[in-house]
Simulated scan of single mutants.
Amino acid sequence: MVKKGKQERTVIHLEMNGEHYYLGSLAAIYQFFDSKTLGISYGSLRNFGLSHEKPYQNKHCIIRKGVLLTISKKNDQ
């Protein structure tokens, strides 16, 4: 449960070749990397059902879905 004044945002964590990338959506991944590099198409990744409990992994990358916790801009605590 998130406390008042806090916000949750989905974050996609891409791990590839020892590097870590954090993106705001699955679609954003494909703005920076192509299907060949990732080893999976956008449609297939959407159909996979990515979740916190179910990351996607192949020989090219690991893609995880998580939550980014932030405070509100008003700083109401």
Rank of each mutant, 00 (worst) to 15 (best):
I29Q: 09
E19P: 04
V2F: 09
K74W: 08
E19D: 09
H52V: 14
S72E: 10
L50C: 08
K54A: 03
S41E: 01
C61Q: 02
E19V: 05
S41V: 05
G66D: 05
L23N: 04
S51K: 15
N75C: 07
S44H: 08
Y22T: 02
Y42G: 01
T10V: 11
G49N: 14
K36S: 06
L69E: 00
I62P: 06
G43W: 05
S41D: 01
Y42Q: 06
T37D: 08
S72R: 13
A28N: 04
S44N: 11
N47F: 15
Q31F: 00
G43F: 02
M1N: 14
R64L: 11
K54W: 03
G43E: 02
I71P: 03
E19N: 10
L38Y: 09
K4R: 08
K3V: 08
S41N: 02
S41T: 12
K74L: 14
L69G: 00
R64C: 11
N75S: 12
M16N: 05
K36L: 08
S35D: 03
S51L: 14
L26T: 14
C61K: 04
F33M: 09
K73I: 09
H52Q: 14
M16Q: 12
A27K: 14
M16D: 06
H13V: 08
L26W: 07
I62W: 05
L26Q: 13
I62T: 10
H60D: 00
K4D: 00
K36G: 03
N75L: 12
E8Q: 11
I71V: 13
R64H: 07
K36D: 03
F33K: 13
D34H: 00
L45H: 09
L26M: 14
K73M: 11
T70D: 09
Y22V: 02
S51P: 14
L14G: 07
E15T: 08
L23Q: 06
E53S: 15
L38T: 10
S25M: 06
S25G: 02
L68N: 10
K54E: 03
K36P: 00
T10K: 12
A27Y: 13
Y30K: 06
Y42T: 02
K4H: 01
L45T: 09
P55G: 15
K73C: 11
R64M: 12
L45A: 10
Y21T: 00
L38R: 12
E8W: 08
T10H: 03
H20I: 15
F32C: 03
R46L: 15
G18Q: 05
T37M: 11
Y42N: 04
E8Y: 08
N17M: 10
K59W: 01
Y21N: 07
I12R: 13
L69A: 01
L45K: 13
G5F: 13
I63W: 04
Y21M: 00
K74G: 13
Y42I: 03
T70R: 15
T37Y: 04
K54N: 13
K65R: 15
